[in-house]
């Protein structure tokens, strides 16, 4: 049996843990709401770009796509992969899911005789890649909770340049899609070459293009990639905070269960100590009376 003092000490420390995890849960909850708003606010831009791109690419096929970000290459030797992870841990299985998916992707590509170069967004992924000696070409960390588009452009620029310079023939991104507070999904998405919408749903308008279609498309395609990467980063941030919130809530619950168990142990220990003492006194008194 542990001593009552020992049990009291453990109750106190479990209560402290519960208090801290509860505070972290609340911080994560408020950051999650903000991150969710950011994801939603960024959506219209991406959707409009997609629409305009649909208008343009429908008329552009085959040879015209060469030397643009639409260029589908026959032989694929090098593949770029952006992995988006949080800078910090304590967010459940989110990080390990992304890393596991990335390792699998790497193996799949290598089995097809392709080399994978990594772009790491977030410290967790960057550390993992370095530890396992993957080929990292670019890393970006300390983005914070509400990055602006300009903060993320450097990644997009590197990916686009590497594709246009034929250093890579395809580029992908692995990130965590925010479905809802309880569900986050690890996603693999192709970035380059851009797969344009097959057919735009909305009614056709006879647009005039200024200066002309090619130039508009040339300006549009890189922005589409930029906005895709930006979106993926925002989704990942929202996922990170909701995963952390849930993880912290579970930790608080476990700590509270522990406090309850320990309190019961404490009562038992205390009770048996009292019983002991009483029986000692009683037996002492008894032996006196007998004597």
């Amino acid at each position: 049996m542990p001593s009552t003092r020992e049990v009291r000490r453990r109750i106190r420390s479990a209560k402290n843990v519960a208090q801290i995890t509860r505070a972290m849960e609340m911080v994560a909850a408020s950051k999650m709401r903000k991150a969710q708003r950011n994801v939603l606010a960024a959506r219209p831009y991406a959707e409009r770009l997609w629409d305009v791109m649909g208008e343009l690419t429908a008329r552009m096929t085959g040879g015209k796509r060469k030397d643009t970000l639409l260029d589908v290459r026959k032989e694929i030797k090098n593949v770029g992969l952006i992995i988006i992870t949080p800078d910090r841990g304590l967010c459940g299985s989110l990080v390990s899911n992304v890393l596991r998916r990335s390792s699998r992707f790497n193996n799949e590509q290598r089995n097809q005789g392709r080399a994978v170069q990594f772009y790491a967004v977030g410290k967790k992924g960057s550390d993992f890649l370095q530890r396992n000696q993957f080929d990292i070409t670019y890393r970006l960390t300390r983005l914070g909770d509400t990055p602006k588009l300009v903060d993320t452009l450097s990644v997009a620029n590197h990916v686009i340049m590497d594709f246009l310079e034929h250093k890579q023939d395809e580029a992908y991104v692995i990130y965590t899609q925010f479905v809802n507070t309880l569900v986050q999904q690890t996603m693999l998405k192709q970035l380059l070459p851009i797969e344009p919408p097959v057919e735009s749903k909305r009614e056709r308008n006879d647009y005039t293009y200024e200066p002309d279609q090619e130039q508009v498309l040339e300006e549009l395609l890189p922005r589409f990639v930029e906005s895709q990467i930006y979106q993926a980063i925002l989704e990942s941030i929202a996922s990170e905070h909701s995963a952390r919130m849930v993880a912290m809530r579970n930790a608080t619950d476990s700590a509270k269960d522990l406090v309850q168990d320990l309190t019961q142990t404490y009562n038992k220990v205390r009770q048996s100590a009292i019983t002991n003492e009483v029986s000692e006194i009683a037996s002492g008194a008894l032996s006196l009376m007998e004597g």
């Binding site: 305009v52 005039t208 293009y209 200024e210 200066p211 508009v216």
Partner: peptide, 16 residues
């Protein structure tokens, strides 16, 4: 291509 003014009933246009 320069500053342009857009009034209602402008023709459909996509520009940089």
């Amino acid at each position: 291509d320069g500053q342009i003014g857009v009034l209602p009933r402008h023709c459909a246009l996509i520009t940089i």
